[in-house]
Design a protein around this nucleic acid. Structure first.
Lengths: 116, 116
DNA sequence: CAGCATCCATTCGGATACTG
DNA sequence: CAGTATCCGAATGGATGCTG
């Protein structure tokens, strides 16, 4: 089990975690199912193409479920699976870290750029 | 503070966390400084270009320090800053999650592919 | 509403060759 | 040893238009 090896499956999992759209979608699924259009509204600048593509990937990995309601107009709900929830908690920590340390990062960048 | 907004700084931080090479380098810096060549050896399939480029980015963000020793042959050490350490702990959790749930993900993928 | 298909600009990153 | 510079193919992902 070696994340540093390209062909190790754990790397694939890490790559998924590392995908910005996947992370944002999983975060957006906090607190219950969301519709396709709701996700699109929440993640303002995602294109339909990437939204669909990423959702399919997450579904394939067993992180979200896709439920089609046979109504007109169509309605599709996405929700976290148990596996998705367990990852979600981790991503929440990441979001918290990101929001909590922007200032540090930005001042570090400013200092670095001033130097060079 | 909204990670879903493209121009929010917190998104930039999230993007950095989402960069595979950055994650692997930060993980590889566990337990003290490492030399350039050591990093290259640990992360088997990273090119010199990406290693240097990513290290520069991490340095700029205040996550790692770069120390040049004035000796022949040259020796450069990279180490985590305090900020880097705080992020590192989070990434370790991610690595643990990844290694602990590969089986779930892989069986989910197999099931999904069998269905379609 | 929730997508899929196609085209295409941009970016990413590998390979290679060279340097202080 | 620790990079830098350049080239270039591959992949990413946005825009657009169409469909059940």
């Amino acid at each position: 089990m070696d994340v540093y090896a390209k062909n190790c499956p754990s790397r694939q999992v890490l790559d998924r975690i590392g995908d910005t759209w996947s992370v944002l979608i999983l975060l957006a699924l906090t607190g219950g199912p969301r519709r396709y259009s709701q996700l699109q509204a929440t993640i303002a600048d995602i294109s339909p193409k990437m939204l669909t593509q990423t959702l399919r990937g997450l579904e394939r990995d067993g992180l979200v479920t896709r439920t089609v309601h046979a109504v007109v107009p169509p309605r599709v709900d996405y929700a976290l699976t148990a596996l998705g929830v367990s990852l979600h908690d981790l991503l929440e920590s990441m979001r918290v870290w990101a929001e909590g340390h922007i200032d540090d990062v930005e001042s570090a960048r400013a200092a670095y750029d001033r130097r060079s």
